[in-house]
Each structure stands twice: as structure tokens, then as C-alpha cells.
Simulated assay, not measured.
Amino acid sequence: MNTATETVSDDDLRVLAEQLGREPRGVVGIAARCVCGRPTVARTAPRLPDGTPFPTVFYLTHPGAVAAASTLEANGVMKEMTARLETDEELAAAYRKAHEHYLAQREAIGHVDEIDGISAGGMPTRVKCLHVLFAHALAAGPGVNPLGDEALALARDTWRPDRCTC
């Protein structure tokens, strides 16, 4: 199901362009794939080819997953999750670990001073983007990003990583 690859084929780049509606930028690998083999999450360099710092190492590309994350965002899930981070110390600690994991994954690709210590999606203190949390959870696997795992579970009626909707 989640077969990450460090190589990116011409077909992967074609599919990513189709999914995004534009040419993909800075892709260094495919971090998660649909069960049919098409990209679901692109692994992106921390500095784009034009020199722009880019903190989002795991970029959600699958249209069904993007739509599911957008629906959850529109339904106020981010606000609820952020509120829980303020009161649930165990959740906050696990989310901080997810932030550290995200930073380590990006640092393994390359260091960019301008975004040092900055992950994505609002980590480690708030939830700003469920697309990032979906992507991180799909790339890292269960148990790494608790709110990403939770968001994926909330979306199961509309999109699931174990069912192809390509």
C-alpha cells in the first residue's frame, strides 16, 4: 500500500502534473503511493529549484485525499484539534515528536537555514493544514503523527489509502 521510493520516474512526474494541474517542483521522491501505484504524497526538496525555501517535505497530491482533507478543514476539524493540543499534554507531546520527525526527514534531504526548526502544518503547537498532516501520516506510517492518523481516520468514509479512487 505505502511503497515509498527515492526515485521519481517520468511517469510519476506526469501523474503529479496531472494531479496538481501544474508542473511539480522540487520532487525528490514519492513518499506514499495509492494501492494502484500512482503517487499520493510527493517528497519535496527543502529548497525549490528557483531557490525558494520550501518547508513542506511531504506534499499531498492525490485528488481524493486532497478533497477529503479540504472537507475536514471546512468542517472545523483544525480548530478542534488545536484546542485539544492546549489541554491534552500527552497529545501535545506526541505532536511535538511528529514535528521533530518531520524536521529530521527534511534535514535528511538537505539543510536550509531560512526554515531551520520550522516544520509544516502548524506543528508543533497548532493545526494549520490537514493536507500536511495527511501527507506526513501517509509517508511515515501509523503512530508517528497522531493528528495526521486521526485526520485519516475521520476521512475514511470519503477517502482511504487502502482503496484506489484514481
Rank of each mutant, 00 (worst) to 15 (best):
98 A>K: 02
42 A>M: 07
53 P>N: 13
100 E>T: 09
59 Y>R: 11
54 F>I: 02
102 Y>N: 14
49 P>R: 08
82 T>P: 07
87 T>K: 13
98 A>P: 03
47 R>W: 07
68 A>L: 12
107 E>M: 00
92 A>E: 05
69 A>S: 11
103 L>F: 01
49 P>Q: 09
83 A>F: 02
66 V>Q: 13
69 A>M: 08
115 I>P: 01
90 E>A: 14
43 R>G: 06
42 A>S: 11
52 T>R: 15
94 A>H: 04
62 H>F: 05
107 E>A: 10
90 E>I: 05
112 V>H: 03
114 E>K: 05
108 A>R: 09
58 F>G: 11
97 K>P: 00
76 G>T: 06
92 A>G: 01
79 K>S: 11
82 T>A: 05
63 P>N: 12
104 A>G: 05
66 V>M: 11
41 V>F: 08
99 H>G: 05
108 A>V: 02
116 D>Y: 00
51 G>Q: 13
90 E>V: 13
111 H>D: 02
73 E>N: 06
47 R>L: 10
63 P>A: 12
91 L>H: 06
46 P>G: 08
59 Y>T: 11
56 T>N: 13
77 V>H: 07
106 R>L: 06
45 A>V: 09
77 V>M: 08
41 V>S: 10
78 M>V: 00
106 R>M: 07
65 A>E: 11
95 Y>I: 04
46 P>D: 03
84 R>W: 01
66 V>L: 13
85 L>R: 07
81 M>N: 03
67 A>F: 10
92 A>D: 07
101 H>Y: 13
47 R>A: 15
65 A>N: 10
66 V>Y: 11
56 T>C: 15
105 Q>D: 10
77 V>Y: 05
117 G>D: 00
51 G>A: 14
93 A>L: 02
88 D>F: 02
46 P>T: 04
75 N>M: 08
93 A>M: 01
52 T>I: 10
112 V>S: 02
41 V>Q: 06
69 A>K: 07
105 Q>S: 10
65 A>M: 12
110 G>W: 01
73 E>W: 03
115 I>F: 00
78 M>N: 11
54 F>S: 15
42 A>E: 09
116 D>R: 08
84 R>V: 03
108 A>P: 01
68 A>N: 10
105 Q>H: 01
68 A>S: 13
97 K>A: 15
47 R>P: 09
73 E>D: 08
108 A>I: 01
103 L>C: 04
67 A>G: 11
50 D>K: 13
111 H>Q: 06
95 Y>A: 01
116 D>A: 13
92 A>L: 05
106 R>E: 04
92 A>M: 03
81 M>F: 15
107 E>N: 07
52 T>A: 15
112 V>K: 01
45 A>E: 14
70 S>I: 03
67 A>W: 09
96 R>V: 02
53 P>R: 12
93 A>G: 04
117 G>P: 00
53 P>H: 13
115 I>E: 00
90 E>G: 11
61 T>K: 08
65 A>G: 15
100 E>L: 14
41 V>W: 06
103 L>W: 02
108 A>Q: 03
83 A>W: 06
77 V>N: 02
44 T>G: 00
64 G>Y: 08
104 A>T: 04
